[in-house]
Design a protein around this nucleic acid. Structure first.
Length: 586
RNA sequence: GCGCCCGUAGCUCAGCUGGAUAGAGCGCACCCCUCCUAAGGGUGAGGCCACAGGUUCAAAUCCUGUCGGGCGCACCA
């Protein structure tokens, strides 16, 4: 409907331009919105106010000219000029009912569109280091990224969902070494565990698994392990030097194959756990992209060479630096350390180069808000490589703060007392977790009330929406049981009987759904869909309480059953995009 | 100190990419099931949209500054 009105207005503008009443070089943006108040008709446009100045006319006078030039259309009953110069459109009586047969015939596809025009878009999200289980912070990124990808899919983009696996680099070495050290402890060796090592309980489980499988093959004496290793921090040394030396010692004592046993055991176990966790959370990926593959395939070196060729690198203090300040970054960044090791940032450059080489029309990164400082350097790298940094959008997700019993749940990575995503899912359920995570704007700090997410009452928006869905199912069942089953044809033929304010409001709300989806997708704001569903469920519950559906009058009954089914379909479609189930009974 | 995000009802948050009287839920005070699931509905109170300037026919929305909160500023990942 909006696009129809837009084309009418365009025609009017063109007509006035042809008559030289408007300058010909105008390229206005056509804003047509649904009115909030029925007194202002069904749709309104502010076009006359926007064009008043360039046209040299008073807004209301221009509005009058536009209205005069507007082609007649059967769907428009009348237009009015109101307020400072709004053009209000009143739809032909009866047109509001058209949405119902549309919903019924399109079913699960209702609301989908083609605005994405098949553009190839990558959404990279979560990408947590495989050094431990996902925690509740990652959960928000997962829910947000997955829902965003679903939305983009629904409006016609070709979506590639990707998880970047940081399986290379120092943290992985610390992890592998930690597993080996725990293994040594299980073999009865006694020593002080490095303060910078990974201490979570899951490490011990991996060590135990290696022990079960390989026996004491990789047991080395405490003397061999710790001889000439610089002191750890509690002993007055440097914890970084300490752990780095232990990593080297592990590689040396275990050999390439032995070290790989621990490295792979750690990676496979933790990454496997992350995959299971996300799958159970309803999050699926097109691709799990390995950082190691970038090094192995020479992409990292290739990216560095390309920057070198473009004159964007220089050497200082033995390290190789990238001139990111040329592109607005705060300072230049190191891509290769003085010990020859390439940095994490170098991998990141190669990864983003790879993304662009794969030919995505658009690339979206969903990052934790604590990474915002990296945006400038990554975009700088893209520019320096000769790509358009505008094609990359980085969306930041703020952390969620958990509350239980009105108290903030304390979390800290250092003490290991963080709440895992799995614990959250087990406590509140997948549906509530998925929904709660996306009810707020992603860049908004969020309070996650665990008690509310668990409560089974109208206070809990997810139950409230699911209950609306179940209620419709229940009505349809009840109607069939009372030998007054829903007659779809009769219902569609008598939609005009739906004339009270509740029903009119519901029809209007349903008609908004396709526009809502499009906006939520293009603005990358899944929370709009969550809000919408809450509103739709609310209007449905009010109607349900005010008017009975299963009544004697067969025509009105069927019309109401038809409207109910349309509501159910839209709620189902929306919940599906959110990754939330739509139960038939509760 | 510099950069990014955020300040809307007592609380948690929307506010349709600048529009016509600022919305919802919770909480609070009342009310509604011989009636399709009360896991629901209704009524009421509650706001100088942090503050000060500016742009505009029009600002919660855009710009500048101030104050307040969060997060970043490694040859770590």
């Amino acid at each position: 409907m909006k696009s129809k009105i837009e084309s009418l207005l365009k025609a009017a503008v063109a007509h006035l331009q042809a008559a030289h009443q408007l300058p010909s070089e105008l390229s206005p943006t056509y804003q047509i919105e649904r009115t909030r108040d029925k007194q202002h008709g069904d749709f309104a446009s502010n076009l006359a106010m926007m064009l008043a100045k360039p046209a040299g006319l008073k807004p209301r006078d221009l509005a009058q000219q536009l209205v005069n030039a507007l082609p007649a259309d059967p769907a428009i009953q009348k237009t009015e000029i109101a307020g400072p110069g709004f053009i209000n459109f009143y739809l032909q009586d009866g047109s509001q009912y058209q949405i119902v047969p549309q919903i019924l015939s399109q079913g699960a596809k209702f609301g989908h569109s083609k605005v994405g025009a098949g553009q190839y878009i990558q959404v990279e999200f979560v990408s947590a280091n495989p050094t431990g289980p996902l925690h509740v912070g990652h959960g928000r990124g997962a829910a947000y990224g997955a829902t965003l990808a679903n939305l983009l899919d629904a409006v016609g983009f070709r979506v590639h969902r990707e998880y970047y696996v940081n399986d290379a680099g120092r943290q992985m070495n610390i992890l592998a070494t930690s597993v080996w050290l725990r293994y040594l402890e299980l073999c009865g060796v006694s020593f002080n565990f490095p303060s910078n090592g990974y201490k979570g309980g899951y490490i011990l489980e991996i060590s135990q698994a290696v022990l079960n499988q390989a026996g004491q093959t990789w047991l080395r004496s405490v003397e061999a392990v710790f001889q000439d290793i610089p002191a750890d921090e509690p002993a007055g040394g440097d914890k970084e030097e300490h752990i780095d030396s232990l990593i080297e010692r592990a590689k040396q004592l275990l050999g390439k194959d032995g070290y790989k046993v621990f490295f792979d055991a750690a990676l496979d176990s933790i990454l496997g756990d992350i995959r299971d966790d996300l799958r159970e959370f309803g999050v699926e990926y097109t691709e799990w992209f390995s950082e190691m593959s970038l090094t192995d395939s020479g992409s990292v070196q290739r990216a560095i060479d390309r920057l070198q060729t473009n004159g964007k690198l220089y050497e200082k203090d033995g390290a190789i630096w990238f001139r990111s300040t040329e592109y607005g970054d705060d300072k230049d960044r190191v891509v290769a350390r003085d010990n020859g090791q390439t940095t994490y940032f170098a991998s990141d450059i190669a990864y983003h180069m790879n993304k662009f080489e794969r030919g995505f029309d658009r690339v979206i990164n969903v990052w934790g808000a604590d990474h915002h400082g990296y945006i400038a350097r990554v975009k700088a790298a893209l520019s320096a490589l000769g790509y358009d940094p505008e094609k990359l959008t980085v969306l930041l997700v703020q952390f969620a703060i958990l509350y239980r019993g009105g108290e903030r749940v304390q979390m800290s990575t250092r003490s290991g007392s963080f709440v895992t995503l799995r614990e959250l899912r087990e406590e509140v359920g997948n549906d509530a977790a998925r929904f709660f995570y996306v009810t707020r704007k992603s860049e908004q700090h969020m309070d996650f009330d665990l008690d509310l997410a668990k409560s089974q009452s109208k206070d809990n928006p997810i139950y409230y929406i699911q209950y609306a869905h179940a209620r419709v199912c229940s009505i349809l069942k009840k109607a069939a049981a009372e030998s007054a089953p829903w007659d779809r044809e009769s219902g569609l033929a008598h939609l005009h009987l739906l004339d009270n304010d509740y029903e009119q409001g519901l029809l209007n709300q349903l008609a908004k759904y396709p526009e809502l989806l499009e906006r939520a997708a293009l603005q990358y704001e899944p929370h709009q869909l969550a809000q919408y569903l809450r509103d739709l469920a609310g209007e449905f519950h009010s109607w349900y309480n005010a008017h009975k559906v299963i009544i004697e009058d067969a025509n009105l009954r069927n019309a109401r059953l038809t409207l109910s089914e349309a509501i159910r379909q839209v709620i189902n479609n929306g919940l599906t995009l959110l990754g939330v189930s739509a139960p038939e009974s509760m």
